[in-house]
Design a protein around this nucleic acid. Structure first.
Length: 266
DNA sequence: GAGCAAATAT
DNA sequence: CATATTTGCT
């Protein structure tokens, strides 16, 4: 075992109570809210623009075992989820998670768990991770002067941790702190669905689950505090910021797009 | 389950 | 057309 390895692990141990406490926490894999939200949309449509306060439909059944069910066919799980839109914010969360874990543990499953974004599936992360790796590879080769320009808008929007490109130096267990974020690049409008007319936004996905003060909590806390960074925000900050926007395009029938990003109701 | 490349879908 | 998802394979 190399010294570096034991080093980062040692530091890691200090922050992390135990790996066993991290795993069970991941059970917060969506769906009930998602399914409900979707079902509501398809039948209900008349408003346009207003987020709609989603009168949380009372669950008929009390025992809703989302993750541990076996026989019952949970429609939510089988239902095709809308295409996930990787917003810069969401991507940043992804990058931070990868940076936090280190290349070693940066596998789809662990990344997904660390991100704690309800609605995010392992496939989502795996697919994105695949693309991200390709992006990193491209950067190493001909990033600066190469013919390849900034074709990867998404990836370029988020700063790349230094140790991603150099596995040689220390792999800090602690995440790099992107104190400054190029606002100019971040200002650009997110890849939002072109539906200008009929698109409803319902909040069905939220970030962290308030339970233990584990590494996840700490990690997430940092993520949230970063969001408060820009300038000053006189308004009270909402901890339970929800982050999913389901935009349904009625023009084409049932075209639903899921976009995850931190919402701030202002 | 993870990684990858290619096909497919939106 | 860009990008996310799915598929087949290792």
């Amino acid at each position: 075992m190399r010294e570096e390895d034991s080093n980062w692990f040692a530091k890691w141990e200090e922050e992390l109570p135990s790996p066993e406490e991290l795993i069970p926490l991941s059970q917060s894999l969506i769906t009930p809210d998602l399914a409900i939200a979707f079902d509501l949309h398809r039948n209900n449509n008349s408003n346009s623009g207003q987020p709609l306060p989603q009168t949380t439909p009372p669950q008929p059944n009390s025992s809703a075992e989302i993750a541990g069910d076996s026989t019952g066919d949970e429609p939510a799980r089988t239902l095709k989820r809308p295409r996930l839109v990787w917003t810069p914010q969401l991507h940043k969360r992804f990058v931070d998670a990868v940076a936090h874990l280190g290349i070693k543990n940066a596998v789809p499953k662990t990344i997904m768990q660390l991100m704690s974004v309800d609605g995010l599936t392992r496939e989502n992360v795996a697919s994105h991770l695949q693309k991200y790796r390709l992006y990193l590879k491209r950067m190493k080769s001909g990033g600066g002067g190469g013919g390849s320009g900034d074709s990867d808008h998404l990836f370029a929007s988020s700063p790349v941790p230094p140790h991603f490109l150099h596995p040689t130096s220390r792999q800090s267990s602690d995440l790099f702190i992107p104190s400054f974020v190029p606002i100019s690049t971040q200002q650009q409008h997110i890849a939002a669905p072109p539906s200008q007319f009929l698109h409803r936004q319902i909040s069905a996905v939220n970030f962290t689950s308030p339970t233990k003060a584990t590494d996840q909590a700490m990690f997430l806390a940092r993520q949230q505090s970063e969001l408060q960074q820009p300038v000053f925000k006189p308004s009270s900050l909402h901890l339970h910021s929800q982050v999913a926007n389901y935009t349904q395009d009625l023009k084409s029938g049932a075209k639903t797009v899921l976009t995850l990003f931190p919402t701030r109701d202002d």
